[in-house]
Design a protein around this nucleic acid. Structure first.
Length: 626
RNA sequence: GGGCCUGUAGCUCAGCUUGGAUAGAGUGCUGGACUUCUAAUCCAGUGGUCAAGGGAUCGAAGCCCUUCGGGCCCGCCA
């Protein structure tokens, strides 16, 4: 039993009455009432029929209410028309509460069958392997990871990919640094290798290009060798990339993010994927050879009301977009899979991480999908639009390939100042090349020491090990929640000081509610007894909590259908707020009677289970103590 | 010049897809609640011509049009 059943009962009931009365068919709305005095559920049918029936909305609602009262009802207790014209309903709580609580005990509570086990690919992270992750990357990673978790809950068979651009310009930059710039390929003591590459080598060598033209030429040479993949430089590049990647993945894993497969660009380049895709595009007339104008001799894609996009240069080499096309087609299973797969690592959750290889002694596996979601920030929208169009031509299915875009993370003027940058009161775009960023590891460390102090103050009896565990969980909860709670198309202005706030609408607030509920259950000193009469739960706080618990699957559906991770974040917050109100106003362990205590223990347990599952969707740990 | 996103309380944001009841949170500020199931909490107060103008509608923060402010993208770079 969930709210969905109550809504359905009302929808069907109202529809039957309308049919019987000969009212015209309408798509009316059944939703949660916006205020307590409006009951639990509201229906707007009065407004919709007003014109056709030439009656006031209230009169229609009134008639429907009278008719509805005569019907046999299950989860509905009362029906009444409101002066405004709404048709309102109250729930039959003596039935509703026990059924919701029992339903919430199921292991897969909240699961919906939207995906019907179809194959879904989610690609995220895809950070150039020449630097450490910064908070901008974290937004990508957390959006992608959360979407993957939500889609899994919505019964999609999800594979998560991380695209490793190991043959691009950014990698070439640090290789130049190591080979020709005099930088050691060992990080100084105490510094992670990815930080060293990004903070020092990448930034410094970029500065030097300005004055040293020879260095810039060497870069082109290195880039070419990386793509060909046979030279000594290429082997060295591969080694460096993998060392950086290892360190990046440590940060991802620390954030609770796992993957199924690493796709190396160098192997895509060396496979025949590009030429196959190119031939396909030619034969489908998607791309054409330009005969005149500024792009003469290039293969281009004509776009409506926009500039033509060059796919293949007049010298025959493929451009950046072009490289993405075969990969996108591969993800959708359009082209034959040239890859084999070998173990990369076993992740903390036990999930195996694979990597592509062209070595045919390795295994054949399937990491492709009927649908593909690519998480990249919206600065890539134009290019992604082109790819989306081509994929829909290839697959002749419009939504198979989807670009999930999001706005970037900028640094607040105050935080920019900590990097010795005066932005004149404006926020600033991060840039790895210019060294303008705040790294993910740094944020987690600062947050971690802040939460450690807090946890120690509150739990002086706990040992160091436990405190570290709690503070890490809370720090990650805070960061993940901050990255997910607002809409994808809102810019996040990251402020270091503000990110340390752990109160109000934050991850720790939600985690705290969980910890509180667990303490009640611990102190109760007995297992919840679900045979007890749960209809003793009569206060508004208890009813509200049950209602929120009952809406879990509706929220999952909303989030999955709209690819909107914040929906689940809002839901967790709502659960926590409702529980905290309950906590403050309703006593569990010192209730008026033993049996009431028992009933409330069941509710608290139900809450704990539901919040735990919802937090899992956000990848936020549910701490036992805080 | 073209394309995409955005503008709601001092600040940060929900609500807009699918129009409907008195526009909600957090934070800030003011005041209150810990010998109590953890105060990372709760309660009360404060705070809004929903950027501006127009249109269609019985009804607009939401839909359409125009204008203005802010951000991003538009290379035979990646």
């Amino acid at each position: 039993m969930t709210l969905r059943l109550l809504f359905n009962e009302i929808r069907v009931g109202v529809k039957q009455i309308c049919d019987r009365l000969g009212y015209p068919e309408t798509e009316f709305d059944v939703s949660e009432a916006s205020r307590p005095e409006f009951g639990d559920v509201s229906c707007n049918i009065g407004f919709l029929l007003a014109k056709a029936l030439k009656k006031r909305p209230f009169d229609i609602a009134q008639t429907l209410a009278e008719e509805y009262k005569k019907k046999s009802k299950k989860y509905v207790l009362e029906v009444f028309a409101h002066d405004s014209g709404y048709l309102n309903f109250t729930a039959n709580y003596s039935l509703f509460i026990p059924e919701v609580i029992h339903a919430s005990l199921l292991l897969d509570y909240g699961k919906i069958d939207l995906g019907k086990n179809s194959r879904m690919v989610v690609e995220h992270t895809s950070v150039n392997p020449n630097k450490a992750l910064h908070v901008g990357h974290v937004r990508n990673i957390i959006i992608g990871d959360t979407i993957a978790r939500i889609l899994h809950k919505a019964s999609y068979d999800v594979s998560v990919l991380n695209y490793v651009d190991d043959s691009g310009l950014q990698v070439a930059d640090i290789i130049v640094g190591f080979k020709y710039g005099g930088f050691s390929d060992k990080a100084p003591e105490g510094q992670k290798f990815d930080h060293y590459c990004g903070d020092v080598v990448y930034v410094k060598i970029t500065e030097r290009y300005e004055t040293d033209k020879h260095l810039a030429e060497l870069r082109s040479q290195v880039l070419k060798e990386l793509e060909e993949g046979t030279s000594e430089i290429a082997k060295f590049g591969d080694e460096i990339t993998r060392r950086v990647l290892d360190e990046q993945l440590k940060t991802c894993w620390r954030l609770g993010v796992t993957y199924d497969c690493l796709n190396f660009e160098s192997q895509i380049v060396r496979s025949n994927l590009w030429s196959t895709a190119f031939e396909k595009m030619k034969s489908m007339g998607i791309t054409e050879l330009e005969k005149e104008g500024k792009n003469v001799g290039c293969w281009v894609i004509k776009a409506e009301s926009e500039e033509d996009k060059v796919l293949v240069r007049s010298n025959g080499t493929a451009t950046y977009v072009a490289k993405d096309i075969p990969y996108a087609a591969w993800k959708l299973g359009i082209l034959e899979d040239p890859f084999y797969y070998k173990h990369y690592a076993v992740q903390k959750t036990g999930r195996v991480l694979w990597q592509t290889t062209l070595d045919n002694k390795e295994t054949k596996l399937n990491f492709r999908g009927d649908m593909v979601i690519t998480v990249i920030d919206s600065r890539q929208s134009r290019l992604q639009k082109i790819i989306t169009k081509i994929m829909s031509d290839f697959k002749s299915k419009p939504d198979a390939y989807r670009h999930l875009g999001y706005e970037s993370v900028t640094l607040s003027p105050e935080t920019a100042k900590t990097l010795d940058l005066d932005t004149g009161g404006k926020s600033v775009q991060m840039s790895g090349r210019k060294g303008i960023y705040v790294s993910a590891d740094y944020v987690l460390d600062v947050l971690g020491s802040r939460t450690f102090e807090e946890a120690k103050k509150r739990n002086p009896e706990l040992d160091e090990l436990n405190l570290v565990k709690i503070s890490e969980q809370v720090a990650i909860g805070a960061l993940r929640y901050a990255m997910i709670k607002q809409d994808l198309d809102k810019i996040i202005t990251f402020d270091l000081t503000e990110s340390l706030s752990l109160e109000g609408d934050t991850g720790p607030y939600i985690q705290y509610a969980y910890a509180r509920s667990l303490r009640i259950l611990e102190k109760a000193g007995r297992e919840p007894n679900f045979k007890i009469h749960l209809d003793q739960l009569e206060t508004v706080y208890e009813k509200n909590l049950v209602k929120v618990i009952a809406s879990f699957d509706l929220q999952v559906e909303d989030a999955a259908k709209n690819l909107s991770p914040k929906v689940v974040a809002k839901y967790c917050y709502q659960l926590a707020v409702t529980f905290n109100a309950f906590y403050e106003h309703v006593k569990v362990l010192s209730a008026e009677s033993e049996s009431l205590t028992d009933a409330r223990i069941c509710l608290v347990y139900s809450f704990k289970e539901t919040l735990g599952k919802a937090l899992q969707l956000l990848g936020i740990a549910a701490p036992e103590r805080m």
